[in-house]
Structures are given as C-alpha cells and as structure tokens.
Design a binder for these strands. Structure first.
Lengths: 154, 154
DNA sequence: ATTAATGCAAACGGTTTGCACTACT
DNA sequence: AGTAGTGCAAACCGTTTGCATTAAT
C-alpha cells in the first residue's frame, strides 16, 4: 500500500490523506510520518476500531510506534472532525473514520464481532426518547450488546 | 441505618439482605461483615452505581474496605442474580440491584446524570434489530449517551 | 476442622501526562 | 528560528490476581 497520498494510485485513501494534511496545515499543525502511518491504518479499517487496535496496527507499519503519539494524533483527528469516538461494551475507546452517516454499534457478546447501526434502524428509539423525555440521543456513541444471529443458533 | 437484617425496622432492605444471606448459604457461601456493608450500600442506591463508587461508599461505612473484596463480592452477587452489570459511557463498570424489569441506561454527556430506560421504551429498537438481523439485544447492557432535556435548554 | 473470604500488595490494560529532544514549517 | 510533535518513562484509574492469613460454617 502506498505511503504518500500524492503518489498513491488507490484513490479514496489518497484523497483522504491530502484532505487531512490540508486541514492540519490550515491550523498550523504538522504532517509527520507517524500521522501518515495512522492515517494509512485508519483508511484501511472497516469503520470502527479500538485505540489499542490502532496502536497495534500502526506497529505493523512501524514497530517503533509509541502509544501516546497515536492517542495524541487521534485527539487532533477528532478535533478536525476526521474521526469520532465512542466506547465498546467493555469500555475501551472505539474510533471511527469520517462517518458519512451517523451510526451506532452492535456488538455480539459471544463472538465479539460488531456491526454498524444506521440512523434509520435506531430512528424509532431516538424519536421515542426525544419525544418522551426531551433526550437527544448521541447515535455515534450508541453501543448495543447482545447475541448475533449466528451465535444464537449454535 | 440498621446493619443487621434481623434487627432492622425499615422493611425492604432487611428482606433483601436475608434473601441474599439465604441464597449465599444455599450455595455454601458465607455471610460476612464486608458483604453486609456492601449490601447496605446497594440497598440505598437508586439502582445504578459504578464499581468505584461502591468501593467509596463502602469506605464510608468501613474505612478499611478493600477494593478487591468489593469486586469479588459483586461477582458472587452477580452469580446469584442479585445484581447485574453493564458499562457507563466512559467505560467503567456499572452495577444495578435486582432489576425487577430489565432496563438500559440513558446518560447525559454534559451533566453526567443518568436514568433508566424501561423495556417498553426500547421495545421498537429491540424488535427491529431482532427482526432485521436476528440480533438479540441485551437490554441490561444498553447504555445511551446524549443530551438531557435540561442541558439542551441551557 | 474445613474451606470460603479477607487483606495486602502487586500487576493488569488501556490511556494520559510531563519533559527534554527532534524535526516539520 | 520557532514551535508542533515525538519518544520515553512514569503515572494514571478502575479492576483483577496470587497468596498467606483470618474467620464463618
């Protein structure tokens, strides 16, 4: 996989990287090899990963990766709106990239696989809570634990 | 507040304690001062507390309280079905006493207050996920973050 | 007399912090 | 040159573990 957006041939990822680079530069922030590595990792996720997983995957690219650098970069990426975070059922931080649509997460307590819940699937709950209690649900922080179809059968 | 269920005059708490004591004895487990203290704390909660909060409140009763004892007791209380646990939005363990009805939690990201969500309020979501994906929601682990009515106004 | 439960201390895992140094701009 | 970002190490917080000791049965 390409490491520099400007030389990349895969399209989407390259576009995202230069966008991030520009957003950083616009704020006087900098583009470093460590940030590039994290962006590379983020670009190849299916949309949600824990902080610890990101550290691990960055280490695959650069074994010298330091956790604090990853977490600090995640903070700035969250500030510029490139990622957002919620929490898994067992309390670890869960990050997701540029959510095109806001969504929650569904997690199986047995196989620990997880899926996204799009707005429309949670719509009834969200509007019910809003109408009944005036509570504005933060869907991107919604994490539902349960048993997936496959695990229920076996 | 009374410390021994058999001498207690307040009713509910005393009943719960002897029930727990009996459940423990039925399994060859023991009734200790430390467990009594935790039960006293649990009896006076509004239904949900974090593990760390329980440790702190037990210390108010007995300053010599040891965290591991509290957590170990919570484990057995969960085993005998007297409490169950989920996780708060920031990932700490959240315990609740004998849920008469299974329920989730609503937490305000600003004032950090929290409320219970009874089954019926989550019913639509639960059945939608079950029908659409065969996913069995674990309502007692459901924790929704958002902005409460009071905090939205100000 | 059993053996469950405790106190203690140390370790855990994920994340955060302080600080001197490095390297983007 | 200026200062954002890094590497490192140490601290953090809530929770868990191992083990010798205590105490409920």
């Amino acid at each position: 996989m390409a490491v520099d957006g400007s030389l990349d041939g895969t399209g989407i990822a390259a576009a995202d990287w230069s966008k991030v680079r520009d957003l950083l530069h616009a704020r006087g922030l900098r583009w470093t090899p460590q940030r590039r590595a994290l962006l590379e990792v983020l670009a190849s996720t299916d949309g949600h990963v824990t902080g610890a997983e990101l550290v691990e995957r960055c280490r695959a690219i650069d074994p010298a990766t330091i956790p604090s650098t990853v977490y600090r970069t995640l903070d700035v990426l969250e500030e510029i709106g490139f990622v957002s975070h919620s929490h898994t059922a067992d309390g670890r931080e869960q990050f997701h990239v540029l959510p095109v649509v806001e969504h929650g997460h569904l997690e199986c307590r047995r196989c620990h696989d997880s899926w996204e819940i799009p707005v429309d699937e949670a719509a009834e709950l969200v509007t019910a809570l809003e109408r009944g209690r005036g509570f504005a649900v933060d869907l991107s922080h919604l994490s539902i634990l349960g048993l997936c179809a496959a695990c229920r059968e076996s």
